[in-house]
């Protein structure tokens, strides 16, 4: 296996890039917070999806630059991204089903009064 001992496999990220990414992340966080504080009326229904899109965008920034995915082997990227596929599968198929028996769960007799926990 040929390689040079000067560490050809290290890809130090430029500090400027890292700081730029950090500032972008902070700004996006502020944006999400502001969105939830100001009632934009129309956004109500989409609010959740917009918040999730922003979160995913932030996640992508962290993955690409903080986690060096940008410089990483494609296989490693594939490995990690496959996890999200399986999470979506898990959520999706479970969700397709659950509304079917929601009523039987809701109507099940409950334990009436919660036992108090003493501090």
């Amino acid at each position: 296996m040929s390689h040079d001992h000067d560490g050809g496999f290290a890809h130090p990220a430029p500090p400027k890039l890292l700081i730029t990414v950090f500032i972008a992340l902070v700004l996006l966080t502020i944006l999400t917070l502001a969105m939830s504080s100001i009632d934009l009326g129309l956004m109500g229904a989409f609010g959740f999806w917009i918040a999730m899109s922003i979160a995913s965008f932030k996640a992508a920034l962290v993955l690409l630059f903080f986690m060096h995915m940008y410089w990483d082997k494609p296989f490693n990227v594939l490995v990690f991204l496959s996890s999200s596929l399986f999470v979506i599968l898990f959520i999706g198929l479970t969700l397709m089903d659950s509304s079917h028996y929601k009523n039987s769960v809701d109507e099940y007799p409950r334990q009436p009064d919660p036992p108090a926990l003493s501090p």
Partner: peptide, 23 residues
């Protein structure tokens, strides 16, 4: 602690456990 995720007596969903388990 009866966190009410799987136990119907606390509003949980026992079929959800089966989904989790068989996944």
């Amino acid at each position: 602690m009866h966190i009410g995720i799987f136990d119907p007596k606390y509003g949980g969903d026992p079929v959800l456990f089966q989904h989790f388990f068989w996944f």
